[in-house]
Write a protein that binds this DNA or RNA. Structure first.
Lengths: 111, 111
DNA sequence: TCGTAAGTTTCCATATAATTCAACTTTTTC
DNA sequence: GAAAAAGTTGAATTATATGGAAACTTACGA
């Protein structure tokens, strides 16, 4: 999981704006959906933060952590806890949804 | 976060089947979406596990952990790591998606 | 109502996520 | 192109999630 170039991977919002899933509510709401994967999560934080015109330091203040911590979250150096995710997106006034998709067939009981 | 009765909170799949968001693909696919919150996550695991007709012990075997661990996850005694969530739902052959919703307006820059 | 299977709880160890600080690098601005 | 601002990195520390074992409780079928 370290094969990519690493130089600006920042594709999320821009690319995602196309395959935008939602447009449910009022005028100005955007929804970005993606398979839950660590890498993407980090990008998402960064994207939304930029959308909100905040520096890492400012976001850090909102949450109560150092800018270095935000940097780490965005660059997903690590596995992350749900609480952490919520803390961040709450500060960014973003709503986080989660969905589980099951194919009834797909499952073989035998192991 | 400990005000409820605690006796069978198991509402997820049954209740959720109504406000079913997806129905995207082929015949038998179900999608359950919910606000990311710890409590609900545990219920979701339990629901899907039951859907798959597995005991906690069996699910544990699939993942490589003790049944007590599964119990803990379902009763969300703890905060949880993304990796753990993925491990569990992967074992349950469920696809996990994640979405972030932002209201452009909603944000006041001043703090 | 007994016995078994399923689920829960507690105690404990270990791994690792969260975090800071400070130095460093990159980007931006003038 | 120098100075300032923004972002990154590494080392160290603290907090806590993961996990096992075993004893316990609950559910459930005969």
């Amino acid at each position: 999981m370290e094969t990519k170039k690493k130089k600006m991977k920042m594709m999320t919002l821009d690319q995602m704006k196309d395959k935008d899933i939602g447009k449910i509510g009022t005028a100005e709401r955007d929804i970005y959906e993606f398979d839950l994967r660590m890498e993407v999560l980090g990008d998402m934080i960064k994207s939304v933060r930029k959308e909100r015109k905040l520096t890492q330091e400012q976001l850090g203040e909102l949450i109560g952590v150092q800018k270095s911590q935000i940097s780490k979250l965005e660059r997903n150096t690590k596995n992350v806890t749900i609480e952490t995710i919520l803390k961040v997106f709450r500060a960014l006034k973003a709503n986080v949804k989660f969905s589980v998709e099951i194919n009834e067939s797909e499952f073989k009981v035998a192991q």
